[in-house]
Nucleic acid binder design. Sequence first.
DNA 1: AGCCAGGCTGCGA
DNA 2: TCGCAGCATGGC
Length: 282
Amino acid sequence: MANIIEFVTENNTPAVKISGVTPFSVEKTFDCGQCFSFDPVSADSFTGTAFGKTVTFTQESADSFTIIGATAEDFDKLWRDYLDLDTDYEAANIAIIEAVPTKYRDFMAQAVECGRGIRLLRQDKWEALVSFIVSQNNNIPRIKKILRALCEKCGVDGNFPTPEALLALGEEGLFALRTGFRAKYIYDAALKVSSGEIDLDETDACDYDKAAEMLCRIKGVGPKVSACVLLFGFHKTEAFPVDVWMRKSLERHFPDGIDVKAFGKNAGLAQQYLFYYERWHG
DNA sequence: AGCCAGGCTGCGA
DNA sequence: TCGCAGCATGGC
């Protein structure tokens, strides 16, 4: 399992070094489109914020990385879970390859190898909901820009804005932040969540289909957005979001189609491998 | 300059 | 039920 060493950097910043977790890739995990709150600062190094804590992840070697800005306590309470370090990805990778028909195994193995090291982050539910509402018919650089603008406008203490804070902006305030036609969607999400009409913890307790149905009551949330929110914010790993890139991937590499349900709880990870392969190496 | 982006809504057939 | 125009904006 993970070996943890806490230390302090030269400028008095706490840091934690983790080794023995494989496969783990900082670069792939934060550049695979599941999370919009981290940016590259150098090779193999990403800075950003999750749950109000700002840190820098740096890959040290194939089986070690550091979290600059984190204490050992933060690691145990937050980052271990956020980075999904206690899941056996080697076993999942084998299962993913075996889940596809024989004729597609060579390609699936190639996609798994390409994305090897991606971790499915356990992000904040509300932040994931807003993030993927913003993502629709949009590109990643602009999605990041809009989310940054929301945080700067009404996030407190490095935290993502609460439903109440976004509600207070109003549709006009949200539109003013260049969210475009999504302003009314973000507003409706804020309204339904802050009023309790939709309780995200209650949603989490439901099975996948029921949870998706609940999220789709929000304006601007459909099959793709709900799948991303359930995968990245609720860690319902049977989710298999299909966007324009995935559509391309599926028709190019699986001309006879595949049964997504055959992946079971590994569907979300399989999807990430295919998306990563198609988007950056297709 | 134009096409496109981790899509969805609302409309018409 | 299915197909599809329209949507705001800006990255490339």
